[in-house]
Design a binder for these strands. Structure first.
Length: 585
RNA sequence: GCCGAAGUGGCUCAGUGGCAGAGCAAGUCCAUGGUAAGGACUAGGUCACGGGUUCGAUUCCCGUCUUCGGCUCCA
């Protein structure tokens, strides 16, 4: 913890240095905020009419080193609001901050190093000249002042700083490695998916290989859900606008929904979510308490109009397929259902070798009672729903953190936050407690006492969107999928053309055991074929030459480079089949 | 959507105001091999798209689309 603080101080000090250098190089520039962040720091600037480009970063770094020589310490002085106003009259951003500090009745502190005066809350190195040595500016980006789209966009410079050169190099190296396992890069290399300008942005096309991975994932999820008492249904991916007006989604989601299509007398819309469709199934007949909980699950295509700048490979797309489900239950059953939903996501994660605490963590996403536009108004119900979710997490002894203002409009949720390889978090799965939809749709069940009662709806996703799941998994496995997910599980490599016929016999046997195999019949050397199978991350290579043909064996090599020697086909077949069954890697 | 950068054979990338380049991949032929790239030859491009400047634009300018790094948003 102490170390973290020191590191933050180092990086924040480096942000000061960056600001000083930029202000010296481009007088008239205003610096805004410059905090330490997880892997470095940033500093925001208003450059006015000056345009700076990536190439300027080197120049700035040089200036930083020059100035650093004069920075012996951080002089910190407490000043009055009036003094701060005077000192920063030229800088609207600092002025705004000074006014806020004044309101919060906090001491206003300024820092001075060399010629550079800044307004700052603190957190610096004692001795910047000695401490700041191993830093690098990384990138240039736009960022809204105070994070609001309504404000002016400033120029942000990202950089990083470490106590030692070794750590800095290690970090830069890690960035390179991260780029190598980017799912977009691997997806292209392994031929899993493509994009087409004519089809449109954010609309990936899966190749046969990509579709194989996707199909295996879907089968896995559907099978597991069926085991756990879900009924898998199929509902149309479009519906009348009125359905979403009834659900109340329409006003909240209008901006991210595709515009309605007029067909004869109907106005249809591509669905942005599946819940109301499932409610219609529920309402198709009267329901008894004996039927509850009803768990409707669906591999559900949905459409959201993401803004162009928000699209990223398979991670953010405009049509995605959710492993969706809506559990309709009595209020008494809700807790148990939520627990079971969390248990399912744990099971799914475990199958992929994802570790709680390391790869993912739970977030309790709460609503803000004051934001009536964003959240359905019912303070009592919110309280109850949030407590229910909190209790579930506590009873399960799950470590979790709470996040304000992250709920759905109809209720709070538990989000399973997944860390991708570059350390960035995305919501992978989610479990939501909904007390609004039952009212909106007038969902009822007949209880023991013969009276109509209102059920609760638990929205949940066991594996999130399959597109996003695939992106995660490609990066997680670096493209080397476990055997059960591998698009091609076995590559048969005949050493000479003489061996092709025999190879075909083997292929047929593999196929009849439901193993995905191919033969490399190209006129290439065996070495070259091995290399290609290896770069394609194919788990097993069966090499067949004259010797194997004569002995009726196969020589087995794995993608890790291991030579398993020759064996009978049945032997390796059993091994592979077992691995597929166990979903081991 | 906003700020910034980029778009050249299937892929990775050079390059230029005056006939468009390499490596890999592909095709043909030779070689028929023993655990990470055998050799030769051939073919392949409206230099993202649309407009403008120019005798001439892949190159310069404007617009559009797409992609990338961020911001905002989000499954």
């Amino acid at each position: 913890m102490e170390n973290d603080k020191n590191l933050d101080n180092l990086r924040h000090s480096c942000a000061h240095l960056l600001a000083a250098a930029v202000l010296e190089l481009w007088p008239g520039t205003h610096n805004a905020i410059g905090p330490a962040i997880e892997n470095g720091f940033y500093q925001d600037f208003d450059f006015g009419d000056v345009k700076i480009v990536e190439e300027d970063l080197g120049k700035i770094e040089q200036k930083m080193r020059e100035i650093l020589a004069t920075w012996d310490n951080f002089q910190i002085k407490e000043v009055s609001a009036a003094q701060a106003r005077k000192d920063f009259a030229y800088n609207p951003y600092k002025l705004e901050l000074a006014e806020e500090f004044a309101k919060e009745v906090k001491a206003i502190t300024e820092t001075v190093q060399g010629n550079f005066l800044d307004l700052c809350k603190g957190g610096h190195l004692e001795n910047p000249k000695q401490g700041i040595k191993h830093f690098k500016l990384l990138s240039l980006a736009g960022a809204y002042w105070r994070g609001s789209e309504k404000n002016k966009m400033l120029t942000r410079i990202y950089g990083t700083c470490f106590p030692t050169q070794k750590e800095l190099d290690g970090y830069l190296n890690m960035l390179e490695e991260t780029k190598k396992r980017d799912h977009r890069k691997i997806g292209k290399e392994l031929g899993l998916f493509v994009f087409s300008n004519l089809v449109g942005a954010g609309l990936p096309l899966l190749t046969a290989k990509g579709a194989t991975v996707r199909r295996e994932l879907e089968r896995f999820i559907v099978d597991e859900e069926l085991k756990r008492g879900y009924q898998h249904v199929l509902t149309p991916p479009l519906a009348k606008v009125e359905l979403y007006e009834t659900s109340g989604h329409y006003p909240y989601y209008k901006d991210t929904m595709y515009p309605p299509m007029n067909v004869e007398e109907e106005k249809l819309i591509l669905r942005p979510m599946t819940c109301p469709h499932h409610f219609m199934l529920y309402k198709s007949q009267p329901r008894s308490y004996k039927e509850l909980p009803i768990r409707y699950a669906e591999i559900s295509p949905q459409f959201r109009y993401e803004r162009s700048g928000e699209l990223t490979g398979l991670m953010r797309v405009r049509m995605f397929t959710l492993s969706d489900a809506h559990i309709i239950c009595t209020p008494e059953q809700a807790k148990q259902e939520i627990k079971q939903a969390l248990n399912l996501t744990d099971f799914v994660n475990k199958t992929f070798g994802l570790v709680k605490g390391k790869n993912y963590r739970f977030r309790l996403s709460l609503g803000d009672r004051n934001e009536e536009k964003k959240y359905f108004k019912d303070d009592v119900a919110w309280e109850k729903a949030e407590n229910t979710l909190r209790e579930v997490l506590k009873e399960n002894n799950e470590p979790f953190f709470e996040a304000e203002n992250e709920a759905a409009f109809y209720g709070p949720k538990i989000d399973i936050q997944m860390k991708n390889v570059s350390g960035k978090e995305e919501t992978a799965f989610t479990v939501q407690y909904d007390f609004v939809m039952p009212k909106r749709f007038n969902l009822k069940y007949i209880d023991k006492d013969g009276k109509e009662k209102e059920p609760v709806v638990v929205h949940r996703s066991s594996a999130g969107a399959f597109e996003r799941l695939m992106a995660f998994l490609i990066e997680h496995y670096k493209g080397a999928f476990p055997v059960w997910l591998s698009p091609i599980q076995v590559q048969i490599i005949p050493i000479t053309d003489r061996n092709i016929k025999h190879a075909q016999n083997i292929l047929e046997q593999l196929n009849s055991s439901n193993i995905r195999a191919e033969i490399d019949v190209r006129s290439e050397t065996m070495q070259s074929k091995i290399r290609d199978a290896q770069t394609q991350k194919i788990p097993y290579m069966l090499i067949i030459g004259d010797r194997e043909e004569k002995e009726d064996t196969v020589a087995v090599r794995t993608r890790t480079g291991e030579d398993l020697g020759t064996m009978k086909l049945d032997q390796i077949l059993d091994k592979i089949i077992k691995e597929i069954e166990l979903k081991s890697s």
